[in-house]
Design a protein around this nucleic acid. Sequence first.
DNA 1: TCACCTATCCCCACTTCCGGTGAGTACCTA
DNA 2: TAGGTACTCACCGGAAGTGGGGATAGGTGA
Lengths: 215, 215
Amino acid sequence: MSLRIAIFDDNKNIRESISLLLKTVPSFEVVGSFSHVLDCVEDVRDCKPDIVLMDIEMPGMTGIEAVIAIRKEYPHIQILMQTVFEDDDRVFDSICAGASGYILKNHLNTKLVEAIMELQYGGSPMSPSIARKVLGKLQQIPQHIKPEEAPDYHLTPREKEVLACIVEGLSYKMIADRLSISYETVRSHVKKIYEKLHVASLTEAVAKAINQRIV
Amino acid sequence: MSLRIAIFDDNKNIRESISLLLKTVPSFEVVGSFSHVLDCVEDVRDCKPDIVLMDIEMPGMTGIEAVIAIRKEYPHIQILMQTVFEDDDRVFDSICAGASGYILKNHLNTKLVEAIMELQYGGSPMSPSIARKVLGKLQQIPQHIKPEEAPDYHLTPREKEVLACIVEGLSYKMIADRLSISYETVRSHVKKIYEKLHVASLTEAVAKAINQRIV
DNA sequence: TCACCTATCCCCACTTCCGGTGAGTACCTA
DNA sequence: TAGGTACTCACCGGAAGTGGGGATAGGTGA
């Protein structure tokens, strides 16, 4: 089973030399070669590559937008970016957009095959400087997700169930039906929830429940 | 100005050979060498390193916990992990904990100096397979933040104000006061919001507003 | 055994919200 | 100038939520 590769690059010479290079590897098969990315999703659909080699600078639509478009439709396809400058924010942006790695254009001859092999085996070839940017991003983001974790309001399991229903937007009557208890029981649970969460209305309870991930 | 390096490794031979190796580089200075990480924060405080070389397997407290502790107190310090096995989840965990890169123990002789140089110049040396894991994490997280970004409900500015008040848990009357409009006006805004968000109660509106970050 | 918690249920009086309908003013664009 | 949109306000009747009170039953642990 050969590895299907598609090439996107606006320079005809580069496309052809890449093509020639890849044809020296028996397990590689170049299934497409395109000079622009305006129809990239259709192109990919038609030639069904396992790996896409994408120039970061493309006319019309940038390589980064192409990455987003292709990943959206075909998330299993690995995309390797080609770039002239290593320390380019666009490299980082491509990575964030879903590219699996990148290679410098003037390393194509020596390292392209190696890089594709790494992609195939689940690696992501990238230089330390880009790796650092990625790390920075990674360490930055999660702190925004859970800043004020969970002050634990000691809700009983039943109360949590009721709260979950409230967050869904159900009325007391609907909650009573779903939990097979009476309307009045729902009410007493809600009263307890209000006490424990220090709120006085459903809307406040919903806001608190979602923001503090109680549900 | 020399680069100050501290070594944490429970194996005395490794500490000494690393030390010897680093002393061959004039611009490097080994300012500390420790066999355990139980006092790592104090050790770092005392010897003021620019770069910490940390064994991932340490007795008592793991290297990963040490990374967290050191980064918490001294976030500017670069930490380079040492590991025996490349494809180790702990390597990935260290990276997430704040390490800036890692190196394989049996590459110490050949690549340690290079790796430290890369750290110094703002890079993060890591293998493609770890890089892939990091990318996976990066692409996974932000999607939780903005899952279905913005179906854009075309709320007018005023409607967004009202919605924000609702999410705060305010009653119609309170909203009317805050926005200096009548109760009935608040009501008509809310009706529009219900239409646009396809909801039929405050609780649903709050849930939708928070989950889809409309506010 | 008794105190405590959880879960269940009930009533009353009051407040707030909901859906529908209608309407006036102001601004902007075609 | 006509039409669209945003913002404002009002009334009615019905539905739903809120706050206060009290009650029963089962389980747990001191």
